[in-house]
Design a protein around this nucleic acid. Structure first.
Length: 313
DNA sequence: AGCCAGGCCCTCC
DNA sequence: GGAGGGCCTGGC
């Protein structure tokens, strides 16, 4: 009886097209999802999206979720949008699978989707990503939410909404330092001040071109080419964005010998060289040429594959 | 100890 | 443009 009631907690729906929830939430694009498990609910993911504690699980081709405090009926379209379920993966795969490098990756991880996150949270997350690892980025983001965000009271615990730009600006740089953000505390604080003043309207950038949006976000402190492209790809719906980080640098060098003509070897000698800003732009242009409007999906496949390899190392 | 982890910024040159 | 160096932190 209890079990029956608990099972009814889930709201189910069938996404249109392929979906791999684990790959989507675990591929390093979002930082507030945790693996969770309980006798009543089984294995699932727990996260915070738009001020809701959200639980999610996949059973074959069906997605099951809970949302609190919003009722599932109204939250469902928000969640579908967040999960990138509007992306036409068939079309994307058809376009990308002619590439002999991507084809096996697409075959290996079908249903890996690019999320459409809250831009402000995404921006802060990737400012924190500099010189950092995924576990600690997650810790930083969670600490910021816990310190300055609104508490979400729950039957079985508590989570915190991600705080507004104003709240982060009001918190001050030293309070952010106390959360072990290190030198990124200053960037997060200064960016919060600028965004809360309306210097950059993140949601408005969804309507702008890729180039204009990149130009706008890279005016913010702590946001250069790589972080900017992550924000565009993972929260501003710019699926042509192509963040160039160490994983992508390595994957490009290894898999696309053509690029060796204009990028340094990632494993050349004792001190591997990083691409210069100009070379990063060249890599992006090369990707735009080859992958067109779906470069972001190509990027995420290359990134995820290299990430899994480096986790095994 | 020293290097690495999904960079960015500043100072020369 | 490009090279070099510094930067918080935590784990190995």
């Amino acid at each position: 009886m209890t079990r029956a009631r608990e099972t009814q907690e889930w709201t189910a729906f069938r996404p249109d097209g392929a979906m791999d929830l684990e790959a989507t939430l675990d591929c390093g694009q979002a930082f507030r999802w945790r693996a969770a498990s309980s006798p009543a609910l089984g294995d699932h993911f727990e996260g915070v999206v738009f001020g809701n504690r959200v639980r999610l699980k996949q059973v074959e081709s069906e997605l099951l979720f809970t949302s609190e405090p919003d009722p599932p009926s109204s939250f469902r379209p928000v969640l579908q949008d967040y999960l990138g379920l509007g992306h036409d993966l068939e079309a994307i795969y058809t376009a990308l699978a002619s590439d002999s490098v991507l084809a096996p990756l697409i075959h290996r991880y079908p249903g890996l989707r690019i999320l459409s996150q809250e831009p402000w949270e995404c921006l802060v997350s990737f400012i924190c990503s500099a010189n950092n690892n995924i576990a600690r980025i997650s810790q930083n983001v969670e600490d910021i939410a816990r310190a300055f965000g609104r508490r979400i009271a729950l039957q079985d615990g508590e989570r915190w909404a991600f705080p507004s730009p104003q709240a982060v600006a009001d918190a001050g740089e030293s309070a952010l330092r106390d959360l072990r953000l290190g030198y990124k505390a200053k960037y997060v604080h200064q960016t919060a001040a600028l965004v809360s003043q309306g210097q950059v309207d993140l949601y408005a950038l969804r309507e702008e071109s890729y180039e204009r949006a990149l130009e706008a976000v890279t005016t913010l402190p702590g946001v250069a080419d790589k972080v900017g492209n992550c924000v565009l790809l993972f929260s501003l719906d710019k699926l042509e964005a192509f963040p160039v980080d160490v994983h992508i640098h390595r994957a490009m060098w290894d898999s696309y010998p053509d690029t060796r003509a204009f990028i340094p070897s990632p494993r050349d000698g004792p001190k591997p060289r990083k691409p210069t800003p100009k070379q990063v732009r060249q890599i992006r242009e090369w990707a735009a040429q080859r992958f067109g409007p779906h470069a972001g999906y190509a990027n995420q496949y290359l990134f995820y594959d290299d990430l899994l390899k480096s986790r095994r190392r």
